[in-house]
Design a protein around this nucleic acid. Sequence first.
DNA 1: TAGTGGTCTAGACCACAGC
DNA 2: CTGTGGTCTAGACCACTAG
Lengths: 245, 245
Amino acid sequence: MHDHTPDTRPATLHARIRAEVEAHILSGDWKPGHRIPTETELMLRYGCSRMTVNKAMASLASAGLISRNRRAGTTVARPRLHSAVLNIPDVRAEIEARGETYGYRALLDEMRPPCCIHLGAEGHQMGRSRFIRSVHLADESPILVEDRHIFLDAVPAAADVDFGQEPPGPWLLGHVPWTEAEHRIAAIPADAMTARALSVPLGTACLLVERRTWRGAETLTIARQVFRGEAFDLTARFGPSPTGG
Amino acid sequence: MHDHTPDTRPATLHARIRAEVEAHILSGDWKPGHRIPTETELMLRYGCSRMTVNKAMASLASAGLISRNRRAGTTVARPRLHSAVLNIPDVRAEIEARGETYGYRALLDEMRPPCCIHLGAEGHQMGRSRFIRSVHLADESPILVEDRHIFLDAVPAAADVDFGQEPPGPWLLGHVPWTEAEHRIAAIPADAMTARALSVPLGTACLLVERRTWRGAETLTIARQVFRGEAFDLTARFGPSPTGG
DNA sequence: TAGTGGTCTAGACCACAGC
DNA sequence: CTGTGGTCTAGACCACTAG
């Protein structure tokens, strides 16, 4: 996609340590839960002082990639939720928080590359993708229709999951660590498919959220979610990051 | 607003140093551009080593509150833009990036408290507020209608600005440091006012963005922006934070 | 050129949690 | 109890840059 190499050429030692540990995690080499060498081990391995290692690890910890405990040592963090930035993904929790019962129904599940509207020129390079169209319901009433592509080269485990019962979103969040996400948000009038799936008149104002998730340079999944108008709000809250600790 | 005291009782020294410097900045005591004591000065003041001071300052720098230069020392950072999280605010840049000419027209400018829909119980405590309704145009065609409240107790300088020529958003971004922002995003059908302001049929799908901005516990401004349907996308991109630097 | 932040060291003590 | 991370020190050298 970009022609410049990532070019992570850390000038300083702590940056290099951080980058190398990060690479192990992002490549999947070190899975969630994997025990990372202790500060003392890394100190010896890199021939530096413990403070330098500590700076690298503290940085990774504040980024949420690792979790640290006194006696337990340092482990690769479980994939986190959307760190409170854009709290849409857990539709189920949203619905249940409103006291309604959550429902899920898969409409389609097939191998299909994402249609061109989702992608640029790199579309044909993304390999096999599983496509799931589903509807999420609140008290039996459809609230959200979701078209999702999962790229099996990046997430091979997704090939064996039964998305007839379990929505792909939560499964992905729980099993696949990601490093970057991009959202596109727009208001659209309901088209024919959407209107039928959501039981609303044609043209009803709906909220479209397209989410694309990466691990490193690899696209993991693309979700196109259309929320029934007025039924859902997106909220996003942020500030100068909890960098303190 | 909250009954628990902020209770920032930093257990560690570097956290305390960070908190105290941060307090000077957030209270407005140290304005943007203000020169912050050098690491050596702070080291003496707190009777600790320079490393400890450095940890506190590095944390503030990565949070974007201060900017550091070798010879020039450390200064309070100019208020930053939306740190690439939710890039809506600069409507003008968006429009010009599409090769269209940007236009701005103020429709209303008066002293008026925010209507109850925007606020909870604390609404009556917010003091004087300036209300500006404006339209932003792309090639003479309205794209966005904005209702904005600016709370003059929090932003007294805003009382003297001529928002007939300059939109309040960019002015605020450039002059007022904020610490937290919350967005509510929804799809709505255009009501009568909106339809007229945007020259669209009643009921057209529009994108509503409500943004509320704080400095500490103090609300600075509330903006309610309605974008003409299909004319604008919101994009949000993020990952595990660029904590490295 | 002088002063600043950026980095690093080789120690140290402590708090905590698993054994 | 023991090993781990969290913190802190009292130095040091270097790179950058404003004056």
